[in-house]
Simulated assay, not measured.
Amino acid sequence: MTSGTDAPAFEEYASDAWPSLYRHAYLLTGNHADAEDIAQQTLLKAYRSWSRICRSDSLEAYLRRILTNTFLSARRPKKRRFELLTDTPPEHDSTPVHHGPEDRLMLWPYVKSLPPRQRVVIVLRYYEDLTEQEIADTLGCSRGTVKSQAHRALKALRAAMGSERADGRES
């Protein structure tokens, strides 16, 4: 645990960082409850090592890496997660495609369907606007791995969107 002198600095940082952590967690998980859980787990892990973390060159990058690793760890096959299945698929909006911030919302159901590591790369690259190197640093991998994960994810997104258009569900 950290000493009492570190706690106020951590509390102040945690309060300031919460909106960004929560947004990032929500983009990864796709729901509010899991986003809050992962963001809280991230802050708990950060608190336990705050005396070391607070000396980091980039606290934001350090916490983003903790959050990303926490998300990926929770998605490993060793744990069983149950999802509510329904007989009716979600309704799709048939409004014309716009090129702007709305596109991110329209793409979100497809992004959520990607495998966790591909979803992380897409979220960090296109929702958080990080560079390939920043993503590689966050994931602890090479830029080449980031590029290949992004390539696979974009290919899967195009295929999913193309098959939906072919089925006549999208105009």
Rank of each mutant, 00 (worst) to 15 (best):
T2E: 15
G4I: 12
G4R: 13
T5S: 15
D6L: 08
A7V: 13
P8S: 09
A9G: 13
A9T: 13
A9M: 12
F10N: 09
E11W: 09
E12W: 08
A14S: 12
A14C: 07
S15P: 05
D16R: 14
A17G: 07
A17L: 03
A17I: 04
P19E: 08
S20G: 12
S20T: 11
Y22Q: 09
R23C: 05
H24Q: 08
A25G: 03
Y26T: 02
Y26M: 09
L28V: 02
L28N: 02
L28W: 01
T29N: 00
T29V: 02
G30W: 02
G30Q: 01
N31K: 07
H32N: 14
A33Y: 07
A33F: 08
A35L: 03
E36Y: 00
E36V: 02
E36G: 00
D37Q: 07
Q41L: 10
T42D: 02
T42G: 00
K45E: 08
A46M: 01
Y47T: 08
W50R: 03
R52T: 11
I53D: 02
I53C: 03
D57Q: 11
E60W: 06
R64S: 03
R64C: 04
I66E: 01
L67F: 04
T70Y: 00
T70V: 08
F71L: 02
F71D: 00
L72W: 01
S73R: 13
R81D: 05
E83P: 11
L84Y: 10
L84I: 13
L85H: 13
T86W: 12
D87W: 09
D87H: 13
P89C: 14
P90L: 07
H92D: 15
D93P: 05
S94D: 14
T95G: 15
H98M: 15
H98R: 15
H98A: 15
H99V: 11
G100T: 06
G100P: 06
P101A: 08
D103P: 14
R104N: 13
R104D: 15
M106A: 15
M106I: 11
M106R: 14
M106P: 05
P109Q: 04
Y110G: 07
V111Y: 01
V111S: 01
S113V: 05
S113Y: 04
P116D: 04
R117D: 10
R119Q: 00
V120D: 01
V121E: 01
V123K: 00
V123S: 01
Y126R: 10
Y127W: 10
Y127S: 11
D129F: 12
T131A: 06
E134K: 04
E134L: 09
I135T: 06
A136P: 06
L139E: 03
C141E: 06
C141T: 05
T145S: 10
V146E: 00
K147M: 10
A150T: 04
A150P: 03
R152Y: 06
R152W: 05
A156C: 02
A156M: 05
S163C: 13
S163Q: 13
E164R: 11
D167C: 09
G168I: 04
